[in-house]
Design a protein around this nucleic acid. Structure first.
Length: 758
DNA sequence: GTTGGTATCTGTGGA
DNA sequence: AGATACCAAC
C-alpha cells in the first residue's frame, strides 16, 4: 500500500481511493477532510492522470494554497500544475482566456462591492429614482441573487413572482436598474464577483467555438471543497463540466450540511441533496467521516447537542476518542468592556497554566466591530494579536485611489476607476463636469474615457480633463516596456498622489503615506518574486499584478512567523483550529444576529455558525456574554444567547457562569481609558523574513546556474539545484532549500536572485 | 469648484 | 461612536 494511504482510517481511505465516478463525502468538523481531499488528488496523480487534468475548487485562496502544499508533500512539485484555486480565481483565469468570445476584453477589470455599489448608485441617480426607496444595498443584493440563480435581466422581467416582489417593495424599476447595470459593466469591461461565476456559466451555456467541450475534456477529475456553501450557479457550472453524455462523471464533492453558513449570499444546502439525486443513476458513492480528530469529548458532545436543535440535517454522529478534556467555561460580564477584560485575564491565565503560545489562541466574534475591546485589553497586557477582516489593506481609500490609476492604465474603459481619480488629486474637475461627461457617455453609448473629447465644458475644466487623459495615456505607452513596480512608482509620482500625501502632516496623513509606500513595496515584492506558482511564464506587468490582488483578502496572507493571538469573525474561522478558542458576545440579537430572528431558517443558520465556532477548539473552549454593550453609540441590554442553553450543563464548568452573575458587577475596577492609546495602534502586516544577509548577498548571473550547484537565495537561504527545465528563455530551476518548510521550490531563473556558493 | 461644517446612516457575514 | 454623505458658504 502507498505510504500515504496508511495515514488514513478506513472510511477516509475509501473516499481517497474511490477515484472514479461521483462521490459525496460528508465530513464532520475535524474529520480529516483536507487530508482526504489532498490525498485523493495525490492518488489520482499517482495512478497516471496529468496534474493539469484535475480541477479542485475551494472558497478561499488559503484553503487552495494549503491543499497544494499538502499535495506537494506526496507528489512533489507536480502539485503546482493542478488547477486548484477558489471558484472566483479559477474562473477568472479561464475568463481571461475566453473573454473575447463573450464580448469582454481579456484584461477586464474586476469590480469589488464598492465599485458595484457606486455604479448602482449612479444608475439610480441617472434614472431619477428616489434613492431612499431604491436602497443601494437592497438593489445590489437583489441583482446578486438574480445572478446567483441564473436569472438574466430578460428572464427577471418575465418572472411574475420577482416582479411582484419588487412592486410590493415599492421598487418596480429594479429590473431596469439590473438591466442598465449589466450593460454598464460590460461597457466598462468589468465583471463583479458574481459575474466571474455568471459569465463563466454563460460561456459554457452559449458554447461559442465548442468551448464547453474544451473544458469538459480538459478536466478529467473535479473536486469541490465546502460544497455546502456553493450556490445554485456554482453547482450548475459543476454539472456543466461533469454531467454530460459519455462523461466519466469523476466528480467528488466534500461538505458538511451542519457547517453551511453562507445562506445569506445564496448558498443552499439543497445542492447536497440535488447532487445525490442528479448522480443517482451513475452509481454515486457516499462516505461519511464522523470521527473527529481535533477536539476533546466535552467539546464534541456539546457541538452535537447544539446541532440537534436544527430541523433538517444529514444524519450523522460525530465522535472523538481524545478523552473528556476540559469542560467548557462560560463567562458572564456586565458590560462589553468587562467582557474584554475577563477574556484577556483568562488568556493570561491559560498561557501561564497550560503554556499556550499566542498563536494557539483565538477570539471569535459574530461581527467585526466587536474586536475593539479585546484589542484594547490585549494591548494593555502586552499580548501580541492580529485582527483579521474588517477594512482590509486594499479597501483603504488611499490604496484604492492609486490602484484605480493602475486599473485605468490597464483598462481605460473602467468607469468606476475613472470616476474615482478623475479629480484626485484635485485638478479642477468637479461634480458638474463629471455629470456632463456621464451624460455624453450615456447618450453616445460609449465609455467616459472615449467621451472626453466630445463633452462641452468651460475651457478650464475641459483642459484639465484633457490633461488628465493625456497623463493616463503617457502611463499606458509605458506599460509594455516597464514592469509593475517601475510603472507603479512613476504613476504614484506623476499623478501627484505622493506629493499630495506628503503635504499632509497629520497623523492620519502620515499613515496614508505609509500605506502607499507599503503598496509599492508589495508590488516590488511581486516583481522580485522568482518562484513559479501556478501557470508558467507569469509576467510581471501591472496587469498581472492587478489580477493577483483583485481576489486577494487579508485572510490569504501567509501565516506569520510571529506569535499572535488571532481575532476574527466566526465566518472567517471556518476551516481553522486552535488549542484554545473564545467565542464571545453570545447574546440574543447579536449571536444569533437580529437580522436572523424572524425566520426559523435564519436561526438555524446562526446555530450552524455557532456550531462552526465551537468546533474550532481543540482543548479549551470559553464562551462569554455581556448584559449590556454599546451599539449604535447607545447602551443596549440583551439576554444571553439561546445557544448557551442548548449545551448540556454537564459539559460546562460549574463554578463559573450563571450563578456568579449577580455578584459580579462590583468586581470591575478600571475601565480602560479611550484616550492616549488611540493613534498608537498599528495593524501588523506580515513581512517576509530574509534568510540571507542582503549586505553581503551578490546575485550571480542566472545563465551560470546549473544542476548540482549549491546556491544561496535571499528569501529561502541555502539550497541545492536539483534540475533545470523549461523553455530557453524561461528556464526554471528546481531547488531544494533545506532551511524552510516545503523545501522543494521552483524558481524562475529570469527573475532569480541566486548566489552560487559552490 | 473647493472648503468646512452638519446631517445621516451604519453595524451580520466575504470572494 | 465613527465614517461617510450632503449642503451651504466662500
Amino acid at each position: 500500500m502507498k505510504p500515504y494511504l496508511l495515514d488514513l482510517n478506513e472510511i477516509q481511505r475509501k473516499a481517497v481511493t474511490t477515484t472514479d465516478g461521483p462521490v459525496l463525502v460528508v465530513a464532520g468538523p475535524g474529520s480529516g477532510k483536507t487530508r482526504v481531499l489532498t490525498y485523493r488528488i495525490a492518488h489520482i496523480i499517482q495512478k497516471g492522470t496529468k496534474p493539469w487534468e484535475i480541477l479542485a475548487l475551494t472558497f478561499t485562496n488559503k484553503a487552495a494554497r494549503e491543499m497544494k502544499e499538502r499535495i506537494a508533500k506526496v507528489v512533489g512539485d507536480k502539485a503546482n500544475q493542478v488547477w486548484a484555486g477558489t471558484f472566483h480565481s479559477i474562473f477568472a483565469r479561464i475568463l481571461r482566456v475566453e473573454a473575447e468570445k463573450l464580448g469582454y476584453p481579456s484584461n477586464f477589470t474586476i469590480y469589488d462591492s464598492d465599485d458595484s455599489k457606486s455604479l448602482i448608485k449612479n444608475i439610480i441617480k441617472e434614472k431619477n429614482l428616489n434613492p431612499e426607496i431604491y436602497n443601494v444595498n437592497a438593489i445590489r443584493a437583489r441583482i446578486s441573487s438574480a445572478k446567483s440563480n441564473i436569472i438574466p435581466p430578460k428572464a427577471y422581467r418575465e418572472n411574475a413572482e420577482l416582479m411582484e416582489q419588487d412592486r410590493f417593495a415599492k421598487r418596480p424599476y429594479t429590473v431596469d436598474i439590473y438591466t442598465a447595470y449589466m450593460a454598464r459593466c460590460k461597457k466598462a469591461g468589468a465583471m463583479d464577483f458574481d459575474d466571474l461565476l455568471y459569465q463563466l456559466y454563460a460561456l459554457l451555456y452559449k458554447n461559442p467555438d465548442n468551448v464547453l467541450e474544451k473544458y469538459q475534456n480538459r478536466f478529467k477529475y473535479l473536486l469541490v471543497d465546502e460544497f455546502q456553501d456553493t450556490n445554485h450557479l456554482q453547482y450548475q457550472i459543476v454539472l456543466k463540466l461533469t454531467n454530460f453524455k459519455n462523461s466519466m462523471r469523476n466528480v467528488c464533492v466534500v461538505g458538511d450540511d451542519a457547517q453551511s453558513i453562507y445562506g445569506f449570499r445564496g448558498a443552499t444546502i439543497e445542492n447536497i441533496l440535488d447532487f445525490e439525486k442528479d448522480f443517482k443513476q451513475h452509481n454515486i458513492q457516499v462516505f461519511k467521516l464522523e470521527q473527529n480528530y481535533r477536539s476533546t469529548e466535552h467539546i464534541v458532545k456539546a457541538a452535537n447537542e447544539v446541532i440537534t436543535f436544527n430541523k433538517r440535517q444529514i444524519k450523522k454522529e460525530i465522535w472523538s476518542n481524545k478523552g473528556d478534556g476540559s469542560k467548557i467555561k462560560v463567562i458572564k460580564a456586565q458590560t462589553d468592556n468587562e467582557e474584554g477584560k475577563r477574556i484577556a485575564d483568562t488568556i493570561v491565565e491559560q498561557k501561564n497554566r497550560h503554556h499556550l503560545s499566542n498563536k494557539e489562541i483565538a477570539i471569535l466574534y459574530r461581527t467585526n466591530a466587536q474586536s475593539r475591546v479585546f484589542e484594547e485589553y490585549l494591548r494593555r497586557y502586552n499580548i501580541l494579536y492580529k485582527v483579521y477582516g474588517g477594512l482590509s489593506f486594499y479597501q483603504r481609500k488611499e490604496v484604492k485611489d492609486l490602484v484605480a490609476y493602475f486599473r485605468l492604465v490597464v483598462n481605460p474603459s473602467d468607469e468606476e476607476a475613472f470616476r474615482r481619480v478623475v479629480n484626485y488629486p484635485k485638478r479642477g474637475i468637479g461634480k458638474a463636469s463629471v455629470e456632463k461627461l456621464t451624460a455624453v457617455a450615456v447618450q453616445t453609448d460609449q465609455s467616459l474615457w472615449d467621451s472626453v473629447e466630445q463633452v462641452n465644458l468651460g475651457a478650464r475644466a475641459k483642459n484639465s480633463l484633457l490633461a488628465f487623459k493625456q497623463i493616463i495615456q503617457s502611463f499606458q505607452s509605458k506599460k509594455d516596456s516597464l514592469n509593475a513596480y517601475e510603472l507603479a512608482t512613476i504613476i504614484a509620482k506623476k499623478s501627484k498622489i505622493l506629493d499630495t500625501l506628503k503635504a499632509d502632516n497629520t497623523i492620519e496623513g502620515m499613515g496614508r503615506l505609509e500605506n502607499i509606500v507599503g503598496l509599492l513595496d508589495g508590488i516590488k515584492e511581486f516583481v522580485e518574486n522568482d518562484e513559479v506558482t501556478e501557470e508558467e511564464n507569469e509576467d510581471k506587468s501591472l496587469a498581472t499584478y492587478l489580477q493577483n490582488i483583485a481576489l486577494h483578502t487579508d485572510l490569504d496572507e501567509k501565516k506569520d512567523i510571529d506569535d499572535f493571538v488571532t481575532l476574527m469573525s466566526v465566518h472567517s474561522a471556518k476551516g481553522l483550529e486552535f488549542k484554545s478558542v473564545f467565542v464571545v458576545g453570545l447574546e440574543e440579537k447579536l449571536f444569533p444576529s437580529f437580522m436572523s430572528l424572524d425566520t426559523i431558517e435564519g436561526i438555524d443558520e446562526e446555530r450552524r455558525l455557532f456550531y462552526v465556532a465551537i468546533t474550532r477548539a481543540e482543548q479549551f473552549l470559553t464562551l462569554s456574554y455581556a448584559n449590556s454593550r454599546y451599539r449604535y453609540g447607545q447602551m443596549r441590554y440583551n439576554e444571553p444567547s439561546r445557544f448557551l442553553n442548548e449545551i448540556d450543563i454537564r459539559h460546562i464548568e460549574s463554578n463559573t457562569a450563571m450563578r456568579q452573575s449577580a455578584l459580579n458587577s462590583t468586581g470591575i475596577s478600571a475601565m480602560p481609558s479611550r484616550s492616549g492609546v488611540k493613534g498608537n495602534f498599528k495593524r501588523v502586516t506580515p513581512n517576509t523574513t530574509l534568510m540571507a544577509d542582503p549586505a553581503t548577498f551578490k546575485p550571480s548571473p542566472s545563465s551560470q546556474i546549473q544542476a548540482g550547484m549549491k546556491v544561496l537565495h535571499l528569501k529561502f537561504g541555502e539550497g541545492k539545484v536539483l534540475s533545470i527545465d523549461g523553455s530557453e528563455k524561461n528556464k526554471v530551476a528546481t531547488i531544494f532549500f533545506n532551511k524552510i518548510d516545503n523545501p522543494q521550490r521552483r524558481i524562475m531563473l529570469k527573475f532569480a536572485k541566486l548566489q552560487i556558493l559552490s
